[in-house]
């Protein structure tokens, strides 16, 4: 009697073979690879923190002995880890598994902005609708302030921000528009078309954004320009001093006031 079992077994075996093929990354392994990345990041951070503590302990003794104190690294060295993350993102290029690695790169690349810019470029072209992108929303507002040799030309930054501003996520749109139009709110003449467009765009974005700090920033940059410009009358401050005694800014009318927002931290 002929049995179908060997054929079934062969099919099962083939399925198992494909699932284990290292050239075909599976969805489960993307999660594991991200976790491994984050764990290694944590390990490097702990190592760096300990090195800083050790260096501080010896620095005092060295200074007293008149020896020079070596400079301490300002942050852990994630260069290799970032290179790994870029390679992993490339493995998942074009799929929904890439963004989490690209977002991780944006969040982690402190010292060298080049990997961050590459990751943002990829996210802008392929992944603007992915839910992970909103976590790096605020980064989009810093882009115009980066030096040109880091972030590219004004036109390139605008093109990138325009792509993000078409995301299906209203908060990603809001952050991108704040990055795109924030400078016009600061600098454009109040009666210019550029100012009007920026104002209308940002207020529109504020109406649909869901993140509180984003809404505050969208409305706040306009408020800052319009209500706190030189020539405007300052709003009242009614508060308490450090002994809990109430007083007001208007108590000082008749005098020139040097209002100093300060802290010792």
């Amino acid at each position: 009697m002929r049995t179908p079992i060997p054929i079934v077994a062969l099919c099962l075996y083939a399925t198992v073979l494909v699932a284990q093929d290292p050239a075909v990354p599976t969805r489960a392994s993307a999660k594991e690879r991200l976790q491994a990345l984050q764990q290694e990041q944590k390990r490097l951070t702990t190592e760096w923190q300990k090195a800083i503590q050790d260096a501080r302990a010896t620095a005092e003794a060295k200074a007293k002995a008149g020896e020079t104190v070596p400079a301490l690294p300002m942050r852990p060295d994630f260069k290799e880890l970032i290179a790994q993350a870029e390679a992993t993102a490339a493995d998942y290029a074009g799929t929904d598994d890439a963004p989490q690695f690209l977002v991780w790169i944006v969040q982690t690349s402190g010292g060298d902005p080049a990997p961050m810019m590459r990751a943002l470029a990829t996210l802008a072209v392929h992944h603007v609708d992915h839910p992970a992108v909103v976590t790096i929303g605020r980064t989009l507002t810093y882009l115009p302030q980066l030096p040109a040799q880091v972030r590219g030309t004004d036109a390139e930054v605008e093109a990138m921000l325009d792509r993000f501003s078409k995301s299906s996520n209203p908060d990603v749109r809001g952050w991108a528009l704040l990055g795109r139009y924030g400078k016009a709110i600061e600098d454009a003449p109040r009666d210019s078309a550029a100012y009007d467009l920026a104002r209308k765009t940002l207020l529109g974005a504020a109406d649909v954004a869901t993140q509180k700090e984003l809404v505050a920033d969208l409305r706040g940059c306009i408020d800052l320009r319009e209500r706190f410009a030189v020539g405007n009358t300052a709003p009242e401050i009614a508060g308490e001093d450090l002994d809990g005694v109430a007083f007001k800014l208007s108590d000082y009318k008749g005098k020139v006031v040097f209002l100093d927002f300060w802290g010792d931290w």
């Binding site: 706190f228 030189v230 020539g231 300052a234 009318k253 020139v256 006031v257 209002l259 927002f261 802290g263």
Partner: peptide, 26 residues
């Protein structure tokens, strides 16, 4: 609430007011 109302994000920030509390520098 005070820094938030005044949109202070960089510290220290200085604002100079004249006798009528008109903003002359920020």
């Amino acid at each position: 609430p005070i820094p938030a109302a005044w949109h202070v994000t960089g510290w220290p920030t200085i604002v100079v007011l004249d006798r009528d509390q008109v903003i002359c520098y920020r």
